[in-house]
Amino acid sequence: MSDNLQIGRDGRLRHLLTMEGLPRTLLLQILDQAERYAADRRAEGAHGDKKHPVLHGKTVVNLFFEASTRTRTTFELAAKRLAADVVNLQVSASSTSKGETLLDTLKTLEAMQVDMFVIRHEASGAAHFFAQHAAPGVAILNAGDGRHAHPTQALLDMFTIRRHKPDFSKLSVAIVGDALHSRVARSDIHALRTLGARDVRLVAPRPLVPTGIEHLGVKVFNELEAGLDGVDVVILLRLQTERMLGAFLPSTGEFHRDFGLTRERLAKLKPDVLVMHPGPINRGVEIEGDVAYGERSVILEQVAHGVAVRMAVMAMILGGEAA
């Protein structure tokens, strides 16, 4: 559905809406460009302020209809490090609260000569809607839409995995938890399959397994121990109780008992297993506090890598940079 919108006739990235349908070569280009930005940052040190003038003269609007800390902040930092002008739109205080439609909001802001919208919205398909109606030359970058997709989170997850385990063809990856309500799970599955991961698993209670998810090439497990047996990477998902309209689970305590990653369960896994989580973390629910920031966790690395990955995407769409 979205790949024709995402990729222009010249084969270059035009919008980023989903991982679905993107070619492996393009994903690798993004990851390679992100690696160069990350290397530059490491060379500068923690207090470096070097800017890459790739987006000088461009305007990026962060249009967030849902609350966010990590994602919005990293997009803002990414755009500023590329020398773009950045506007953070407080949607709750904008005209949308007065009845203005999404299309009205888009066209009003386009009239102010915006080059890219970074959009987070509670409705699945919202980013695709914006891309369909955006003016030529205006780019849409999906920062998460409903249960559908979160492509830059998937890219930074792949970037983090590749830093530690570069050969995806050898990897067994388990995605654990609330996949039913997770846009990250779907995007990670598409990215892992595109990059050639040999074994992708979804481990969750039956009520939290999306219907037909096996068609994406994943194996479904309803017991944690079996699902984690022999894996190289564990990606934990937040239990999204705010999206649950029915009795999906008896309690968060029972979820932790049956599916939470504890020190005891971690000790039974491979000694070099990677523990990941897109955040925010529910301590004592999907993961024990000591495990979240233990020696096998790369959760803080994921956050740190978000800036470089989002710089790479923005540069490729607006600045014409490629590997």
Rank of each mutant, 00 (worst) to 15 (best):
D258G: 10
A308T: 05
S97F: 12
V176W: 03
A78N: 09
D188R: 03
V91F: 06
V303R: 02
D178C: 04
R41M: 13
S92K: 15
G246K: 13
T152R: 04
L28H: 12
R201A: 06
L22P: 04
T160W: 03
L261M: 14
D10N: 00
D199F: 05
L22W: 02
L155G: 02
A134Y: 01
L28I: 12
L17T: 03
A38H: 11
T262E: 08
S68G: 10
E223R: 15
L245V: 11
L155D: 02
L195A: 08
R265C: 11
S182A: 10
D145M: 07
T71N: 04
V61K: 02
S182I: 03
G289Q: 14
A78Y: 06
Q6I: 00
K165P: 04
T25E: 15
A304R: 15
A292C: 13
R163T: 09
F255M: 10
R36Q: 14
E295C: 10
D199Y: 05
S68K: 12
L102G: 09
V220E: 07
T73A: 12
L17H: 03
G306F: 01
R14N: 02
Q6K: 01
A79K: 01
T241N: 15
P205V: 09
T96Y: 11
A134H: 00
P23I: 06
A322G: 13
F129A: 07
L239E: 04
G137F: 00
G246N: 13
Q90L: 13
R243F: 06
G11H: 01
L109E: 06
A267L: 11
D290I: 07
S297G: 08
D40E: 14
A315R: 00
T252V: 10
D178P: 02
R24K: 14
E66Q: 12
E301G: 08
D232Y: 09
F64V: 06
R183T: 05
V87M: 07
L216V: 07
P207T: 07
R81C: 05
L27W: 06
V309D: 08
M116S: 11
I299T: 04
R296L: 15
R257T: 14
G45M: 06
T194V: 13
T108S: 15
L180C: 05
A83Q: 12
L55R: 00
A204H: 02
A185G: 03
F221T: 10
I287K: 04
P23K: 03
G212Q: 04
P166G: 07
A131L: 03
K219S: 15
T69D: 08
I119L: 12
V114C: 02
K268Q: 13
L216Q: 10
T211N: 13
V54P: 01
H164K: 13
